[in-house]
Design a binder for these strands. Structure first.
Lengths: 197, 197
DNA sequence: GGTGAAGTAGAACGATCGTTCTATCTTGTC
DNA sequence: GACAAGATAGAACGATCGTTCTACTTCACC
């Protein structure tokens, strides 16, 4: 059953492997999840696994790539609503809050991964650093377009408060963190305290 | 060389074990550091290890206990300066910043531990939750004494921003995070933007 | 219709994991 | 001097880690 889906490097087995691993890595941590577990739950053999990924670490990096792509897609979707620059800031903040509340209830995939990879030169940490830098500069552009007072500082504060929201949402519960997050984020972005519009 | 130090559960070997493990767990992560490594660097045998700790997880919890005690001691020291309530708020914020800059450059021990322990009922996660609740209520008391507008929300925001400072300090570098941290923290606590006094 | 890549199945590698064991030695206390 | 507790040394447990291997099957493409 060699179901090659496209001419590129993708295949049904590879997709299942990556989807299963992403779920397990996020929910239970990376070092805690063994290769046996992944191939078992993906319904794939070890040989197939190592045909698609040179090592477990490559799978870990691919997992972070999935998370990165998801967030970029969310930003793209927000921008495609055609909202005005100042509206967009509110949309982004609401989107971040919504993401923490619904999808990322076990903390930030990148922060959690970094906790398990102390070597800053490792592929995993490089992926984390690249993602964070993209995220920060993306926020800066959004604030810049909205004529924020200090886009650079504002973006740094938003990153700060988003990190905290993911950590706090995981450890303390989102409902306890939400008010503080919304207050801090809107203040950092130079928005009024109240509703979106 | 059975150097019993006191009549309680402490001993030189146990102290070395705990100090070595604390350093290794913090610097390299918990699952990444094996028992062999710990006993080796502590200059102790496995038998001695298991005489003092029923299992590795007990050592992990003891490690978090050390971190918890350190932070409590720092709060006590700040309170013993005899500063006025409003001064104390500034002292606490400066102390938190100083701690991130000097000691906790690999992130927050509790957040990192939680990343590796998904089970909220585990002893490790219970220790994390207990520490965080103490920390939050301690901040609330400090803000309360300083007649802050909303001590409960302010404390929640301070926890938020402190979490973020430790994460950001680790992943992005403290010098990049410091301005955003100080601005957010002082605003959350209802302090003026500028110096301590 | 044959070639080759991608799949399955399953055994096996050495290394390390956390844990337990026996046996010997040192030390402080009665 | 005897005894118990703590530390030492080192072998060994079964389990799991990430990785590699051989052998066989199935499909897509030229």
């Amino acid at each position: 059953m060699a179901t090659r889906t496209s001419s590129s490097g993708t295949s049904a087995a590879r997709d299942r492997l990556l989807a299963t691993a992403s779920e397990l890595f996020y929910r239970e941590g990376i070092h805690s999840v063994g290769v046996d577990r992944i191939v078992g739950e993906a319904g794939v053999t070890r040989a197939t696994f190592y045909r698609h990924f040179p090592s477990k670490e490559d799978l870990v990096e691919a997992y972070l790539g999935v998370e990165d792509a998801n967030i970029r897609a969310a930003f793209d979707a927000a921008e495609e609503t055609g909202a005005e620059p100042r509206e967009l800031v509110g949309l982004v903040i609401d989107g971040l809050a919504d993401d923490v509340a619904r999808h990322h209830t076990r903390g930030c995939p990148f922060i959690n991964a970094a906790a398990e990879y102390p070597d800053a030169d490792s592929g995993v940490r490089r992926a984390v650093a690249a993602h964070r830098e993209w995220f920060r500069s993306e926020l800066e552009h959004v604030l810049e377009a909205a004529d924020a007072a200090d886009p650079r500082l504002g973006a740094a504060e938003l990153v700060l408060v988003r990190d905290a929201a993911m950590v706090g949402g995981y450890l303390d519960g989102w409902e306890r963190v939400r008010p503080a997050f919304v207050a801090s984020a809107r203040r950092a972005a130079g928005l009024p305290e109240s509703g979106v519009e």
